[in-house]
Amino acid sequence: MKMADLMTHVLVAYTIAALLSLKYDWMTSPYTTAVMTGAVLPDLTRINLILDSALIENYLGIPFSWTPLHTTGGVLIVILIITVFIPKNLSKRVFLLLVLGAVSHLVLDLLLINASGRSYAVLWPLTHYHPPTPGLYLSTDIFPVFVAGAAALIAYKIKKDRD
């Protein structure tokens, strides 16, 4: 369960995007959504709930793990795949916004409480090193969504006032 709840990730991404929109006029709703989309990509590992990696291993007879989706290398490939379908004149912008959202997700998950005190291999496949975690919250805690929700509301209000 090396994930915060998805709502917290989406709200944090919304907050980041809303703050960016104060500086960049082109940062409209669709681009806010791009940052939010980037922030859910690492949790594509949850595909394991439907297609269990252990069953794939048994079926194919080869080792298999969805975990790379929740690492820098895997999420970067997923973002590149999405970017292929974005018009050329927007692809660089959308790529960077998806990366921003994904990085926010990976960084938040580095703070999760873990029994061993070690986090996850965020930079894989560059390194399998699991950095120590400060252990701020659990993926199943309820308070992070309120903190993220308050931040998103404040960012929304600031943006509204400026508009």
Binding site: P63, S65, P68, I77, I81, W124, P125, H128, P131
Partner: peptide, 22 residues
């Protein structure tokens, strides 16, 4: 890109524990 992703899925599945790395 999909092929690269599949290679990562298989490679990661084949990794042994590395306690020294956490």
């Amino acid at each position: 890109l999909l092929t690269s992703l599949c290679i990562l899925f298989i490679y990661h599945g084949s990794l042994d524990p590395a306690p020294e790395m956490g």
